[in-house]
Write a protein that binds this DNA or RNA. Structure first.
Lengths: 342, 342
DNA sequence: GAATCGCCTCAAACCGCTTTGGATGGTTCA
DNA sequence: TGAACCATCCAAAGCGGTTTGAGGCGATTC
C-alpha cells in the first residue's frame, strides 16, 4: 500500500492525503480524520526511502565506533551509551546507524556519511586530546555532539561530558581523609581526554595536601581486567606499596581486586579501592550496598541526553553549540576503609 | 555534485555516467575511464537516498536489541557481536541500523522495519524458547538470521550458534575427570535458548557418570557479577557445598570468584571454576595463561559470520535457510584443579 | 451582480538515482 | 550492396513520497 493507492481508494489526490497525514493546516479536519482512519485500516506506512529523498533529510544519526587497530578493543560503555541514545531516537523516529571502522578510516567514514547523505548528524565517541574530528566535522558541515571533550580544541563545539576531574579529585580527597597517603592510579589510556582529566583531578588533590604525586603509583593502560591486575600487582610489589587505589572502571577495579587478593591482602582493609562506575546495566556495582566505593555517572543517561542535544542541533543548526557537564556522585561501598596503621 | 551535473560536465547523459560507474558493459571502456576519473576529481558520491529509492533496496540491515523492561539489561556481548557484524557490513557497503526497543514493542518494530522499508534483513538477537519472532519474520517476509537457536521452532530457518550443549558437557566432564562430584551451575536465565542447552549439556554429563543432578546446585539468573556472587554464596553455604562451578559468563565468574574468596577459600584449589568465555575484547580472559578455565567461542567472529550469512540470504532469497554450528574450545586456565580430598 | 476572499483540493514538478526501450552509426557478412 | 548486427549512447519513465502554484467553489462584501 503506497500513497497513490491510498489516495485512489479515498477518492483524493496524493497531495491531500500527504498533507492530511502530516498535519498540514490546509486540509479539512473531516477529511483528515477520514484519511487517518483509512491509513490505519489499510496499514499504510509511508516508505522511508521516498520520504528521505523527497525531504532531503536522512532521519538518521550516525555513531562511528572507532576500533583501535592495535588493540581491537570495543569500549564496553558503548553498549549502554547506545542503548540510552537509542531510546531518544526511537521516540523521535530517527534511525541510528552504526559504523564500526578501523580508526585510520575514520575521516573517510565521516566524509562519506556526509556526502552520500545517509545521516543528519553524528555523535563523536571517545575524544582524544586535540581530536582532529572536531575540525573535520565543522569543515564538512555535519552537525555533531561529542561524548566527552577534546582538550586543545579552540573553537566552541557541542559536547556532553562527566566532570571527570572533579570526580577523581573528590575521590582522592576522600581517600586522603581516610588517612591514605600512598594512593595509586590505575588510569585509562592517557591520550583519551577523560583519562587526562581524571589524572589532573588526582594530582590536584594530592598536591593540595602537600603530597607529591609519585610516578611509580601512576599507571595508564586499557581499561581491562588484565591491565588492572597487572598495574596493581606491580604497585603492590613496590617497597612502599599503596594503601589505596583509584581505578578507571569497574572492570579494571576487578582486576585490581584480583591482584590484591592474590597477594593475600583484603580489599577495604589492607587496600582501599575506588572505581569510576559508569553504571552499566550488566555491570552493576552491587545492589543495596555497593561493592566498590565509586564515582558514579550513568553512561546510559549520557546517551539519552547527548542524543537529545544532537536532535536539537539538527532541528536548529543555526543555534549556538550546546555544552553540558554532568557531575558524578561519590558513593560509598565496601571497598574503602581507613588507612591501615603503619 | 550530483549525477546530472557530472553528466553535463562530461557531455554525457546521466544514463551513461551511471552505467559507467556501476560497471555495466554497455559503455566504452575509454568513456568509463573518463567518467571514473571525473567522478574522483569532482569528489562525486552518489546520493544514498536516491539509490535506495530507485533500486528499492535499503542497503541496510537491522539489529533489534530488546531491552527487558524488567531488568533493563543490555547484554554486553552485543558490543562485540556488533563490532564483528559491522566489519562485514562496511566491506559490503551496507549500513547497520540499530533499534533499541522495550521487548513488548519488538513485534511492532519488526513490522515497521519491513513496511517502511528501511532494512533488507535483520539479525535476531537473544532467541528464547519457542521464540515468536521466527514465525513473525517469516510471515512478513523479512530475511533474517538468528544468533542462537530457538528450541521449539518447527520450520527451518537460518541461524548461527555455538554448540552450547556440547561445550558445557565437555566442561562438566573435565571437572568430573578431576574428581569433582559436587558441581554447581551458575546459569543464565533459562528462558534463553543458550541457557537451556548449557544446562542440558551439564545434566547429561553428570547423568552419564551416574550422578543425579542436584537442584540445590543449579542456579539461573541474569549474567551479572552480583548474580554470580549471590548464587555462589548460596551454594557455599550448603551443608555439602560444591567443589566446582560452571559459570555462564566471565562476569558471573568474577562474581563467583568474589564469593569464593570472601568465604576465605581459594579458586582453583578449594573451588574450581569454569566459565564460558565469549572472548570479548574488553574482557579478555588473561593473556598467556588464561585466568579462568573456559569454554571459549568468539562472539565477534560470530557477528562477522552471521552478517555474512544474512547478506547472502538477502542476495539470494530463494536459497534454503543456512545453519552453522560453531564449536567452543575448552581452554585450561588457573581456575581449575583436582577435587580437594574430602 | 460582480469582485473578493478563504477554504480545500489537485496537477505537476521535483528529489537523484536506476533501468527500459530505443536511436545512431559503423561493421560484418552473405 | 544491402541486411543484420554490434557497440555505444541517450531520452524518458519510473521509485514513492513532498511541495509549489493554481484553481474550484461557496460565502461574503460592496
Amino acid at each position: 500500500m503506497n500513497l497513490k493507492e491510498l489516495a485512489t481508494k479515498l477518492g483524493l489526490s496524493p497531495t491531500t492525503v500527504s498533507r492530511a497525514l502530516n498535519g498540514y493546516p490546509e486540509v479539512n479536519e473531516a477529511t483528515r480524520a477520514r484519511v487517518i482512519a483509512a491509513a490505519k485500516r489499510h496499514n499504510y506506512h509511508p516508505n522511508t526511502r521516498a520520504i528521505r529523498l523527497a525531504t532531503g533529510r536522512a532521519m538518521a544519526v550516525g555513531h562511528v565506533i572507532p576500533i583501535a587497530t592495535r588493540h581491537e578493543i570495543v569500549n564496553p560503555v558503548f553498549a549502554d551509551f547506545i542503548a540510552g541514545a537509542g531510546e531518544t531516537y526511537s521516540r523521535n523516529d530517527y534511525d541510528m546507524i552504526l559504523s564500526v571502522v578501523p580508526d585510520e578510516d575514520e575521516e573517510a567514514t565521516y566524509r562519506g556519511l556526509k556526502s552520500k547523505g545517509n545521516v543528519d548528524g553524528v555523535i563523536v565517541h571517545a575524544p582524544r586530546m586535540n581530536d582532529p574530528r572536531i575540525a573535520l566535522l565543522r569543515e564538512i558541515g555535519l552537525p555533531f555532539v561529542v561524548h566527552g571533550r577534546a582538550t586543545g580544541s579552540s573553537e566552541p563545539y557541542s559536547w556532553l561530558d562527566v566532570n571527570n576531574r572533579r570526580a577523581f579529585q573528590r575521590a582522592t580527597e576522600f581517600l586522603l581523609d581516610l588517612g591514605h597517603t600512598r594512593i595509586g592510579l590505575v588510569n585509562g589510556l592517557e591520550f583519551m581526554d577523560f583519562a587526562i582529566r581524571r589524572r589532573t583531578g588526582y594530582v590536584d588533590a594530592l598536591t593540595a595536601r602537600g603530597i607529591t604525586p609519585d610516578p611509580a603509583l601512576m599507571f595508564s593502560d586499557e581499561m581491562t581486567e588484565v591491565a588492572g591486575f597487572r598495574a596493581t600487582q606491580a604497585m603492590l610489589a613496590l617497597p612502599q606499596p599503596p594503601t589505596a587505589l583509584l581505578c578507571a572502571s569497574m572492570i579494571s577495579g576487578m582486576g585490581a581486586r584480583r591482584a590484591v587478593e592474590s597477594a593475600g591482602l583484603t580489599v577495604g582493609r589492607d587496600v582501599s579501592i575506588i572505581i569510576h562506575d559508569d553504571d552499566l546495566s550488566y555491570m552493576k556495582n552491587g545492589e543495596d550496598v555497593p561493592i566498590f566505593t565509586a564515582t558514579r555517572s550513568s553512561v546510559r543517561e549520557a546517551g539519552r541526553l547527548a542524543a537529545e542535544m544532537l536532535l536539537g542541533l539538527i532541528a536548529h543548526p543555526e543555534d549556538a553549540p550546546q555544552q553540558r557537564l554532568l557531575e558524578a556522585e561519590l558513593i560509598i561501598g565496601q571497598s574503602t576503609g581507613p588507612a591501615p596503621k603503619a
